[in-house]
Design a protein around this nucleic acid. Structure first.
Lengths: 213, 213, 213, 213
DNA sequence: TATGAATGAGTCTTCATTCAT
DNA sequence: AATGAATGAAGACTCATTCAT
C-alpha cells in the first residue's frame, strides 16, 4: 500500500500551491506600486493573492524578503531579454538598435511598465542594496548590451565615432524620460502615436551620428 | 534720549520662530529622502530641526501637509529659475541651451539634486495629486521653456527643423537619466568630469541638429 | 463507532472568540462608567476584558463604535422587557403598575443600575445622536408603555381621569430621582428599605388618583 | 504732571481684569457642557473667554481647578436662592410650594438650565468628591428646604400627613425628569405650555395630599 | 497682566508577525 | 498548507501646562 503515485499527476491543488509564490509576488507588486512599500499592507497583498495574511509567511519570511524576492524575480527575465536581444543583433547593429527602440516605444503604452523601476526608486533611500542590485542586474547590463551594439555599429561604419557612453545615454534617456513622464507623473503626450514618437527621436539621434563625409 | 530703535531689534527668539517652517521643511526633506515618506518619523524630523515632535504641528497640521508644503516650497524657485533662464536667453537660444546644459552638468555632482524628484516618484502612487502638481509646475514648465528656446533656435536657423518635442526629450532625457543613475541607483560614472560629459552629450545632440546644407 | 459528535464540540478557543464582543462591552461599560467616555483608556478596557489593546480593534473599529455598540446592546433587552411587562399587565393595569414599581424599587439597590443612563447623559453633549437614540429606544418606549397601562386603568375605573402625561412623570420621576441621587450623586437614604420606599411613594401617588366618589 | 487720578475710577482694563474669572467660568461651562469635561479643550475655553490659553492659568491653576471653581460658583447662588425662598414662604407653605413649582416650570424652557447638573452627572464617576459636594450643597439643601415647607404645611393642616421624604421626591422627581428629558435627551414635549404642565402635575400630587375628611 | 512658542506625557490606532488549531 | 485570533511595538497626533518676553 501507499504505492508511488505513478508519474505524479500533480493534483490540481498542488499546482496551485506551487503557483502561489508567483501569485503573491504579482499581488505584492501591485500593492507596492499603488501605495509604496511602506504603506502597502500585507493583508491587502494577501487578499489580492487570494490567501490569508498568515499564509504569505509560509512562502516569504518577511515583508522585506517579499520585496527582495519580487525585485529579483522581475530582474532575471528582463536582464536575459536584453542580452539575448543585443547578442542576436550583432550582425546588423544599427537595425537592431532601431528595432529595440521601436519595441520600447510600443511598450511605452503599457501601464505598469515602470512599476518595478518606480518601486526601486521609491525605496532606494531605505534599501540602497536593492537599488544597487537593480542597477547592476538591469541598468548596467542593459547599458553594456547597448554599448556593444553601438561599438559594433561604429566598427561597421554604420555610425560615426563618438563617446559610447554619451550615445547610450542619448538612446535610453529620452525613452526613460518619456516613460517616467507618462506613467509616474501622469502626463499624457506623444504616446498616442508611439511609432511616430520613436521615429522622431531616432531621427534626431541618428542624424547626429551619421558618418561624416 | 530715547533714540529711535534702529531697525527694530526683533528679539532673537522671534527671528527663530519665523525661520522655523523653513528649517522644518529642510529636515523633512532629508528624512523623507533617506527613509521615504511613510518610513520617515515625525520625531526624527523634529529632532533634526531642533524641535520637539509637537512643535512641528504648530506649523504644519499633518505629515501629509508637511509633504505638500515641502514640494510646493521647492517647486516655486525651480520653476521661476527655469523661466527666467529661458526668457533671458532668447537672443541667442543655442548658447542659452548650451549654458543650461553646462549648468545642469555641473550640478549633477550635488547629492540631493534629485531629492525632490525622487521623493515625488516614490509617492506618486499614493499621492497622484502631488505628482500631477509637480509635473505641471516643474516638468511641464521646464519643457515649455526649453521648447521656446528650441523654437527660437530654429527660427534663427541655428539648428535645423525637427520635432520640437523630440528635441526636448533628447535634451532633458540623458541628463535626467544620468542623474537618476548616479544619485538614486548609486552608480558612479562619467560624473568625474561633468564638463566633458555634457560636451559629449551636446556634441551628439547638436550634430543631429546641424542645419542642413 | 464514530458516533455523531454530540452537539458539535466547538473548541474552547472558538467559544471564547464568540464571547469576546460581549466581554469587551462589559469591560467598556465599567471603564466608561468609572472614568467617563473620554478619560477611559482603550488599554484599560482591553486589560479588563483580558485582551490586548489591539485585539479590541478586531471587534470594534474605534472607540466611538465601541460606545455605540455598547449603548445599542444595552438598549435592546431593556426596551423589550418594558414592553413585555406592560403588555402582560393589561388585564389588571393598576396591579401591574404596582408590581413594576416594586420591581424598580428592589432594583434600586443594584449598583450599576444607572450606569448606562449616566453614561448617556455624560456624552449627550458630544454625541447627541446617541442621546436621541437612547431616548427613543428606551425612555420614549417606556413612557408609552406606561401610558397604555395608565389609560387602561382609567378605562377600567381603577384610577380617576387626569392628564396621562403628568401621571407618567409622577410615576417615573421620583424613581429616577431617587436612583440618580443614590447611584450618581452618592447619597444614601431611604434605600435601606425599598419596599417601604415604594409603598410610601405609591401611596402618595395613588391617593391623588383615587376615583372620586 | 501725572496727578493722582482722582478717586481712582478703576480704569476700564482693570475692571475687565477683575471680571475675567467670571468670564472664564462662563466660557468653561459652555465648553464643558458642549463637549464634556475631558473633551473640552483649554484653548477653546480661552478663545471663548477672549483670552490666550496661557492667561487662564493666571486665574486657575489647572483644568480640574477650573472645574471645581465652576461648580462652586454656580452652587452658591442656587443654594442661597432655595433657602431664601423656602424661608420666606413659611407663613403659607402650600402657596409657597405652588409658587416654586410654577417658577420651576417656567424655567424649564431655558436651555442651559441643566448644564451644571448634567456636567456633574457626567463627571461623577471621575470626581466623586465634586458630585458629593454638589449633592450636599445643592440637592440636599433644596431637599431640606422643601421638607421644611412640607412639614409646615402638614402642621398647618394644609396637606395630610404622609412620609415627607416621599413627598419631596414626588415634588422634585417629575420636574427633574421633565428637564432631563428635554434638555439632555433632546425630547420635546409638554414644555410648550409650562403653566399647564405644572398645574396638571400639581393637581395629581395635591389630590393625593388633600387632608382627609 | 498677557501671550506666542514650546514640550512631555499620553492615547488611539495600525500592522507585521506569531501561534494554536 | 492554511487561517482566525491575537499581540508587541511603533507612530501620528493631541493637549494641559510652562516659560521667556
Amino acid at each position: 500500500m501507499n504505492e508511488p503515485q505513478p508519474a505524479a499527476p500533480t493534483p490540481r491543488w498542488r499546482r496551485r500551491a506551487e503557483a502561489r509564490p508567483e501569485e503573491i509576488l504579482d499581488a505584492a507588486l501591485e500593492e507596492f506600486s499603488a501605495r509604496g512599500f511602506d504603506a502597502a499592507r500585507m493583508e491587502d497583498i494577501a487578499k489580492r493573492a487570494g490567501l490569508s495574511k498568515a499564509a504569505i509567511y509560509l512562502y516569504f519570511p518577511s515583508k522585506v524578503a517579499l520585496l527582495e524576492a519580487l525585485i529579483e524575480a522581475r530582474v532575471g527575465p528582463l536582464a536575459r531579454g536584453v542580452q539575448t536581444l543585443s547578442a542576436s543583433g550583432m550582425s546588423d547593429p544599427l537595425t537592431a538598435l532601431r528595432m529595440m527602440a521601436t519595441m520600447a516605444a510600443h511598450r511605452l503604452g503599457e501601464p505598469g511598465l515602470l512599476a518595478v523601476p518606480r518601486l526601486v526608486i521609491g525605496i532606494s533611500g531605505r534599501f540602497p542594496e536593492i537599488a544597487k542590485y537593480y542597477r547592476e542586474q538591469v541598468v548596467e547590463k542593459a547599458r553594456r548590451a547597448l554599448e556593444s551594439l553601438i561599438a559594433a555599429a561604429m566598427a561597421k561604419g554604420q555610425i560615426r565615432r563618438a563617446d559610447k557612453n554619451a550615445i547610450v545615454r542619448a538612446f535610453i534617456g529620452p525613452l526613460f524620460f518619456e516613460a517616467m513622464w507618462t506613467h509616474v507623473l501622469g502626463g499624457e503626450t506623444a504616446l498616442n502615436d508611439p511609432q511616430k514618437l520613436i521615429e522622431q527621436q531616432f531621427d534626431v539621434l541618428l542624424a547626429g551620428l551619421e558618418p561624416r563625409a
